[in-house]
């Protein structure tokens, strides 16, 4: 099973690679959309990344700030999905 720290790190690396910001500008609690680190293309990319990388499916009603506002929020969301069989 993938642990949450590993999920956080994978998401962090993906965001750094696709956002062209330096590592010191993003910590795991940074509000990546509210602070303009990622835009709408970035949002779609993140959804695609977590779906491909962790074999989960994201539904319309899950596109909430609580699930996507920061690296921690996304990692928690992925972790919950991976541990909830009917959401995979």
């Amino acid at each position: 099973m993938v642990d949450i720290l590993n999920i956080q790190e994978q998401i962090r690396q993906f965001i750094l690679k696709t956002s062209y910001v330096s590592a010191d500008q993003v910590n795991n609690d940074t509000l990546i959309f509210a602070q303009g680190i990622m835009d709408s293309m970035g949002f779609i990319s993140i959804i695609g990344f977590i779906e491909d990388n962790f074999s989960i499916t994201t539904n319309d009603n899950e596109l909430l700030e609580a699930n996507f506002e920061s690296i921690n929020a996304i990692a928690d969301f992925v972790f919950r999905k991976l541990n909830t069989n009917d959401n995979k």
Binding site: L31, F33, A34, M38, S40, I44, L63, E65, E69
Partner: peptide, 8 residues
């Protein structure tokens, strides 16, 4: 919310 829109 503060999330950007996505397209369906």
């Amino acid at each position: 919310n503060f999330l950007p829109p996505v397209f369906s």
